[in-house]
Each structure stands twice: as structure tokens, then as C-alpha cells.
Design a binder for these strands. Sequence first.
DNA 1: ATGGTCGAATATCGA
Length: 268
Amino acid sequence: MIRVATWNVNSIRQRLDHVLRFLGEWGPDILLLQETKVEDGLFPGAAFAENGYTTAFSGQKTWNGVAMISKLPLEEISEELPGGMRWPEKRILCATAAGIRIGNVYVPNGGSSGDSFASKLAFLDSLDRVLASVPADMPFLLAGDFNVAPAEDDVHDPEALDGSVCFHPEERLRVGRMLSAGAVDLFRRFHPSGKAYSWWDYRELSFQRNRGMRLDLMLASPALAARAESCEIVREARKWQKPSDHAPVLAAFESVEQSAVLVLEQTR
DNA sequence: ATGGTCGAATATCGA
């Protein structure tokens, strides 16, 4: 079994204790982080090394920043996604672990000014091309903070929020394209309906009132989705002292050896 | 319609 998680931590330096606690209590083999908000020279890699994890990170001062924390070796670490997608800000990190090519993304929020929304749509268009470039038999995971709630069950009030940032038809259309092209939204594979959120605004007691959005997604290629065993949102972490506004999302996959046995049994 | 709460960096901006 291989466990992979994604978490927008809203500053790795503010959330270091939370990340170590999550690693200890939930045991992911690989954890993808977004919004680390730290340049590479100040990334707290030693704290993870002391606990037996290897790290890869791509950060910048003040904003953005992505990282991967792993028990397993991280190979072919790159700031480029399959098909050649790159981005001028530090929003992309890609590596192979346990034979799975894993793309970690922090999609622009797109909420502050006019051209930032256009840039968000361009980022989502590029992700669509990334997925199209991946062969169906390649185990590939595209995960992170997409800043898009794909469906009505992914927001607390779809009527009120329709057309607003993170629940705008143009954003949902683009995520919908990825899903209809064959990418599998792992959380919805195991929880096809029902309200579910991974982010709650710090303001207006949103978490206490459970008014949130499901913005953190794990999209699996068909080959990897076939090996998925579970996918959960770890709401508990949003209750910890001084939390991130996002909760981790954790998925489990059969190891290649397990799935090979399954295929043999099915073809017998 | 506005502001509400965080984080980085120290006045505001981004989310």
C-alpha cells in the first residue's frame, strides 16, 4: 500500500509542527505541499530529514511555493509537468516515487484583479494538455490546490456562489474537461455525492459553520485510478491550534505487486 | 455592498 497526501499549509514555517504531526499520525509515504511561502534557502528541510523524510521544494519569497516530503526516494525531480508545462511562479513540482509520476500544483487563486483570473484559466487549460499528454497506462497523479470546486456538492451554497471565484462556470468547465477526458477525481470515486469541503475561510466562523469548498483535488490517470483503495479529507487537521485554512486530502493505492496479482486473478 | 482573518513583512497585498 502506498499513501499519498496533498495539503495547502499556508506557510510551511508557521505549520511545521502540524505537518510533522500529520506525517506521524496519518503516515503518508508522500506528502505534497502548497503555499509554502518560503524561498529555498530557508526551507526547513532538516526537520524532515531528522524524521527520515527526503524533501524536494520549489519556493519563492512571500508567496506561492510547492514541496514534496517523502519516505521513499524522489526521482526525476522537475519544475515541469508531462507535456512540458512550466509556470513563471513557483507553483509546479513533479517527481517520481514508487513508480508513480506525481505532479504537485498550486493553481492561481485568480480572485484579486482582472488579468489574474485569465491567468488562472490559462493554467487550467495547460493542465488539461498535461493530462492529455499522459498515456492511459502510465500511473500519473496530478494533485494539489486547484482553487476550483468542481460541482455543486463541493460548495456549501451553490446558488449564492455561482459565478464567484473558485466556483465560476469557466473554471468548472475546465476541470470538467479533465474529468471527461479520463482523469479520475479520487475523492468523488469513493464519495460520489454529498457535501464535502477541504477549505474553509478563516473569516465568519466558516469552519464552525461548515461553510467551505472542496478545492484540493487528486486526479489520477486511469492506470493509477484502478489501483486506488481510498481517498479521504482529514478534517481533524483543520481543528488543530492555529490551523491552515485547508485540510489535507489523503489517498491510498495498491502497490504494483498487489495490482499485478489482481490482474492475474481477473484474467484467469 | 462591505468586511470579516490570516501570513509575509511591517503598509498593504494576496487569499
